[in-house]
Amino acid sequence: MIFAEWKPLDELIDKLKIHRKVLLVGCATCVAECAAGGEKEVETLAPLLRMALKKQDHSIEIITATLEKQCEWEFVEQLAQQVAEVDAIMSIACGIGVQALAERFDPVVVYPGVNTSALTIREEAGLWAARCAACGDCILGETFGYCPVARCAKSLLNGPCGGTRKDGKCEVNEEVDCVWNLIVERADERGRLESLSKFKKAKDWSNSSHGGPKRVIREDLRQ
């Protein structure tokens, strides 16, 4: 899922304090999964904002909504009536949701309430970890199902750097497994360590954000 987390409250207050009435919008998809922007979080954040604004003597009304998917136009449309009442929107969906609202409801200002940072999985309760970096040329089939692009701090493709710790953690973060250690272990378990001796040449990054903003046309879907 796309992972996001709340921005510091002070930063949000700083943006909202100049407004009269604000719509706080969540999304029930990824950001609900990562407990940052679902309905529950909308209804938790709204009173926190009201309280903080009031404490600073700003009388600003905050109304709320949560869309099933903030990245689909048909759901975005459902906000039209509420948006008509406000002079600003704060979205706690991922950056895609924020931009969908900004595009549809121009010229109403839309603020992001969260920082979107990664494509993750929930490893356990309250713990999310990166799994994919949308590199545009998936190599999971050669790396025993572990992604070194997203999970190695240096995106190495030919094996671990010299920094793997004694306990198999990454030199960059003692809490995070060195993904190359995991890859090698799994390859070894499957008796296929030799497959990792093959040289992987420099990657073509052009099908990711490095190739310029992504734009895809599927003719079969355009009639």
Partner: peptide, 19 residues
């Protein structure tokens, strides 16, 4: 090039040197 022969995963370090 560099070599960290005693770094984990140790069984891969010679393979990496070969690479």
């Amino acid at each position: 090039a560099a070599w960290t022969p005693l770094g984990p995963p140790e069984k891969f370090r010679t393979i990496r040197l070969a690479k």
